[in-house]
């Protein structure tokens, strides 16, 4: 909601907004970033909303990373801004990204060629993160560079932050006798939502699923994480095919429970 300018002291302590200002802010700034997967874009009313934290959850090999790679490629190919991709499972595949970009027309309907692909791929920045402390470090650096207007990538700012997957960083520390893990999880949630709000980022995280008994599965990270994402999407893939099903578990704007089938292009 806040402007992208340096926040002054007044801004920090309770500058209030009226409804009309909020509406103006939404129409001007809270754009939807396409994921490039038609079914998901339809389901989400156009894509990932800036300022929001979207979570994609699903069993192993259901297509969560594909949603992340597609969103990163689409946003870059349409020159919407820079993508920051935090990878915890060495699954960011540059060759896959190149293939997706190659098949994506830009805003004017032209396909990217040669050197253009290079420019597009240079606007996706990837960093490996293997523990929660490294995540805090990266998010802290990101916040500093976003607040510092001088550091921007030739005029284009980060518009999408992807963490694939947040649950593998949190799983080793939550549960058990010690409450520190849980408080670190909530700190991560607060930082992500603050970044999304103050810098108009769309944040996309993936979560894995755990057994809920009786052979059923549920999203991991428990009840207190459940309240964190604005949008929760669960996806599953049919055995040995690339047809996936996506269901909205939670959405702050749209009715939840709607389901759509989509195909991950090979």
């Amino acid at each position: 909601m806040m402007s992208q300018d340096q926040p002054s002291t007044e801004d920090r302590c309770g500058r209030f907004w009226n409804g009309m200002e909020l509406l103006k802010d939404v129409t001007e700034k809270k754009h939807l970033l396409p994921t490039g997967l038609e079914g998901i874009d339809t389901l989400l009313g156009g894509g990932l909303r800036r300022g929001h934290l979207t979570e994609v959850t699903g069993p192993s090999s259901s297509g969560k990373t594909q949603v992340c790679l597609h969103s990163a490629s689409l946003v870059a190919a349409k020159h919407l801004g820079v993508v920051m991709y935090l990878d915890t499972s060495n699954s960011f595949s540059p060759s896959r990204v190149a293939t997706i970009i190659d098949g994506t027309p830009d805003l004017f309907g032209h396909k990217a060629k040669g050197c253009e692909i290079e420019d597009v791929m240079r606007s996706i920045i990837c960093e490996s993160v293997f523990d929660i402390f490294a995540l805090f470090e990266v998010l802290n650096q990101l916040e500093i560079s976003l607040s510092n207007d001088k550091v921007n990538n030739g005029g284009s700012k980060i518009c999408l932050l992807i963490i694939d997957s947040i649950s593998s960083l949190l799983a080793p520390i939550i549960g058990g006798k010690y409450p520190q893990g849980r408080s670190m999880m909530i700190s991560v949630a607060m930082i992500l939502k603050k970044l999304a709000d103050e810098h108009n980022l769309s944040v996309l995280v993936t979560n894995h699923m755990v057994s809920a008994g009786n052979g059923a599965v549920k999203p991991a990270l428990g009840e207190s994480w459940k309240a964190v994402p604005h949008v929760r999407l669960v996806i599953s893939r049919e055995c040995r095919s690339n047809i996936c099903t996506a269901t909205v578990l939670k959405h702050t704007l749209l009715a939840s429970g709607s389901t759509v089938k989509f195909t991950v292009p090979s």
């Binding site: 190149a98 791929m121 920045i125």
Partner: peptide, 16 residues
Amino acid sequence: MSFVYGAQNAWDMLSD
């Protein structure tokens, strides 16, 4: 142009 120290862009990763 680096937002985060040590981060690589996708193009460099592709050639690697």
